[in-house]
Design a protein around this nucleic acid. Structure first.
Length: 780
RNA sequence: GGGCCUAUGGUCUAGUGGUCAUGACGUCUGCCUUACACGCAGAAGGCCGGGAGUUCGAAUCUCCCUGGGCCCACCA
């Protein structure tokens, strides 16, 4: 017989301190992945967290811990799991972080210096992030961690761009674009948010040519008056019937513009007339196109008005220009009134400042042409939970060509040069990393149009989603290892949050389809968002983000992970609740104490035949639990095993079975054989319970496992085998538990302690439990 | 304005046609019963948002309404 050591210093409660004793050994485990293994491959396109300078909030940590549970459980289900760790390091957030940190402006800093500072910021932030991941036992492959700003990764982004360019999927166009003045770059529709903002609706008069009549126009953008190219009135609007077809004269500028009937003008709003400018909003673009009106550019990319706006406005920032023109109009005596209104304003999701519509020469990925194909793919992809599919479909139905060039520094460079003679783009070969803003093109470069040999590099970078949308190709070694790629692509799983469906999910499908003609994964697993205790989405701007480190230090990683798993079904939003987190921590203590009790009994692990009915009952129950939990893991749903195991341990195993056999396990008044059967069964159940919960709570599971069962970590084990479930024993067990409750209630009613003697009959059906039941309740 | 999702005891959460609706947290009562007071036992608490329909039978399916969330289009 082997005497167990007492569990960890005999601590009565599971705690972060106990986790700290094993955290190094848990994080040091290795998970070698080999494509030559004959195991089924389960590959995860893990989200590379954005090293953006915002501390990771608890919602994100909860999501990553759930992804870890999927990875761990798939390993224990016998799969070869490709579980990469990546860091997304390109793009605007780190640039803004660096500007703030050093109190500098990107555009006033030499590019080379600025990039260096960004890199330093990123390294710090990355370390913080890695520390958090390790603090809760994330088991991705840290050894081969990738960074989206590495040469290899950027070479992939560029190569896949070149591939798409050569296939004719990239177009160049001067289109009115969403332009964020603060970020100094074009942004995609997907990067726009809307915010209710207060603004002035200015009512002012235009004179009518050859008449002493005036027409009243209302506008929130009077500073764009210089570009006014028409006034619209509704054809049904009686007030303006006579004006239609006449020519109005713009105040200040004295320009002639037609008054046109158009249904876009709504009689109810403002003055019932609309002045069309280039560009107040996207309707202006549509109308200008539709009516063939002339555009005038008024705003430069630095956010200042240009010479087209006249002497008084030229050089002013937009807001200042707006104030100025209102003054001018007032001086002119043509302002009727100014109304304060709420206006839903498009803002940049990074800088939170209003976007302007400015025509710029940019590159786009064709989306509109293949929209129907993308919709087809969106229907084909398995999405968990199914209900989130609609978000993707809704977005695809309205999405436009994707602008991919950005006038920024810290990003993957657009690998293009332009012929100094004729301007024709030069496209280099795939496979290398190019920096056209500081490097010459390859020596062999010749302009294919005019034969020129002098080139100027493109200074722009790509949208960061150009990088992250090929993560599935990077981790499967698309460019670098054909065999590996063919075995791992398409991948098994894309786990991600609901908030980046229209960006990461959407662009990944688009890019992978254009490049490989396939969906990048079999399944997309879309989790909900972490909310604060009031149900508000956690975000830095609201200042309601909760630091996962604080929570983990206080309650432990396993309590945090168990909470994340048990709080909500994957896909639902989950609200942070300290009291429920405490509940998770209590459950772990319960499990810990069950293990402490069982660890007292010497156990040699030898298989024996079980005849005792109490033991047969709990074994049947355990076998049912195994089946349910494994089904849950197979469906990528840790919610199911978390709650099933908790219910089992807390409501069945501990109060009913353990109490039932405690006396027998101590050997008080039982034969050695009976005692052995009890101890065997206690361990049978505990051992399997630990395996089932190990992916969710790796720390406590491994600690108990190593103390009681094996030197080999629990995480290297297989999930327990399914065994047949004895349904008759299960229903007998239900009656047993009802009887227990009845006895307890009676004792309570009589005001006697639970261990006091009681005189009652054991029901006929429960006599099978024999001496166990009599000892448990002290029945006479 | 259009679309999608959602609505279960005080709070959160399971449950997709069929016995008294799951569990957790919280609340109340009594207990330190040699694993655990971060515990044990007991109890209270829900006309499953409202209405209509389908059905022998609905929390579960259909329609309408209401509340909440998200997305899209929007007020010049």
């Amino acid at each position: 017989m082997v005497e167990h050591e007492k569990l960890k210093g005999d601590a009565k409660n599971w705690s972060r301190d106990l986790e700290k004793e094993v955290i190094v050994s848990i994080n040091d485990l290795t998970w070698d992945f080999s494509v030559s293994s004959d195991k089924e491959i389960f590959s995860i396109d893990t989200p590379p967290p954005y090293t953006s300078g915002r501390p990771w909030h608890l919602g994100a940590a909860a999501q990553y811990s759930k992804i870890d549970m999927i990875g761990r459980s798939q390993r224990m289900l016998g799969k070869a799991v490709l579980f990469p760790v990546g860091m997304d390091r390109n793009g605007i957030p780190v640039e803004r972080y660096t500007e703030k940190k050093h109190n500098i402006r990107m555009r006033d800093t030499p590019r080379e210096d600025f990039l260096k500072m960004c890199k330093e910021s990123l390294d710090e932030l990355e370390n913080e992030m890695l520390e958090i991941l390790r603090s809760f036992g994330y088991s991705g492959d840290f050894k081969s961690m990738y960074r989206t700003d590495s040469e290899n990764y950027r070479a992939l982004t560029q190569s896949t761009f070149i591939e798409m360019w050569n296939k004719g999927m990239i177009i160049r166009g001067t289109r009115p674009s969403n332009y964020c003045i603060d970020c100094g770059t074009t942004i995609a529709d997907a990067e726009i948010e809307y915010k209710e903002m207060d603004t002035n609706l200015v009512y002012f008069y235009f004179n009518i040519e050859g008449s002493d009549k005036k027409i009243l126009v209302a506008s929130t953008r009077p500073e764009l008056l210089a570009s006014c190219s028409a006034i619209l009135v509704n054809p049904e609007d009686e007030r303006f019937k006579d004006f239609a077809g006449q020519t109005a004269i713009t105040p200040i500028y004295g320009k002639k513009v037609k008054i046109i009937q158009h249904s876009y003008a709504k009689a109810e709003f403002g003055s019932g007339t609309v002045m069309i400018c280039s560009y107040g909003d996207y309707n202006d673009i549509m109308i200008i196109k539709e009516l063939g009106l002339k555009e005038t550019i008024l705003i430069n990319t630095n956010g200042k008005m240009n010479e087209n706006t006249g002497e008084r406005l030229n050089g002013l920032k937009i807001n200042r220009a707006r104030e100025e023109i209102i003054k001018l109009l007032q001086d002119d005596g043509c302002v009727e009134k100014i109304e304060r209104i709420k206006h839903r304003t498009p803002i940049c999701d990074r800088s939170k400042t209003p976007i302007e519509i400015i025509p710029l020469d940019e590159y786009y990925v064709k989306v509109i042409d293949i929209r129907s194909k993308l919709l087809e793919l969106a229907e084909k992809l398995e999405i968990i939970p199914e209900q989130h599919r609609q978000i993707l479909i809704n977005w695809l139905k309205v999405s436009n060509d994707w602008p991919i060039s950005r006038r920024r520094y810290y990003g993957t460079e657009i690998p293009l040069w332009y012929c100094n003679n004729c301007g024709e783009p030069f496209v280099p070969e795939e496979g290398k990393y190019y920096r056209p803003w500081k490097e010459k093109p390859p020596e062999t470069a010749v302009c294919r149009k005019c034969g020129g040999k002098e080139f100027t590099g493109d200074e722009r970078t790509f949208d960061t989603w150009m990088d992250s949308s090929v993560s599935s190709l990077y981790v499967t070694k698309y460019l670098y290892d054909k065999k590996f790629f063919s075995k791992t692509y398409p991948m098994t799983l894309r786990p991600q949050g609901i908030d980046i469906i229209r960006t990461w999910l959407n662009y990944s499908i688009l890019r992978n389809y254009l490049l490989t003609d396939k969906l990048p994964w079999k399944t997309a697993w879309i989790d909900g968002m972490g909310l604060d205790e009031h149900g508000e989405k956690m975000s830095k701007s609201k200042g309601n983000g909760i630091d996962p480190t604080d929570v983990i230090e206080k309650y432990g990683a396993d309590a945090f992970r168990f909470w994340a798993a048990s709080e909500a079904m994957p896909g639902s939003n989950f609200m942070f609740s300290e009291s429920r987190l405490q509940g998770s921590s209590k459950f772990l203590t319960k499990l810990w104490n069950v293990a402490r009790l069982i660890s007292q009994f010497p156990f040699d692990g030898k298989e024996i035949e079980i005849k005792n009915y109490s033991d047969r009952w709990i074994i049947a129950y355990t076998n049912k639990l195994i089946k349910e939990c494994k089904e849950g893991y197979t469906k990528l749903n840790p919610f199911i095993p978390a709650n099933k195991v908790r219910e089992f341990v807390w409501n069945v195993f501990a109060p009913h079975y353990v109490e039932l056999v405690k006396a027998r396990a101590y050997g008080e008044g039982f034969s050695a054989e009976e005692k052995e059967s009890a101890i065997y069964t206690l361990n049978y159940v505990l051992k399997r319970t630990l395996l089932l919960i190990a992916p969710i709570t790796p720390f406590i599971s491994d600690t108990i496992w190593k103390e009681l069962y094996s030197n080999e970590p629990v995480h290297y084990q297989k999930m327990p085998e399914n065994s047949s479930v004895d349904d008759e024993m299960l229903s007998l067990g239900e009656k047993l538990m009802e009887f227990d409750s009845r006895v307890w209630a009676i004792k309570k009613e009589k005001g006697i302690s639970l261990r006091e003697k009681i005189n009652m009959d054991v029901p006929e059906g429960l006599k099978l439990f024999g001496e166990d039941l009599i000892k448990m309740h002290n029945i006479e």
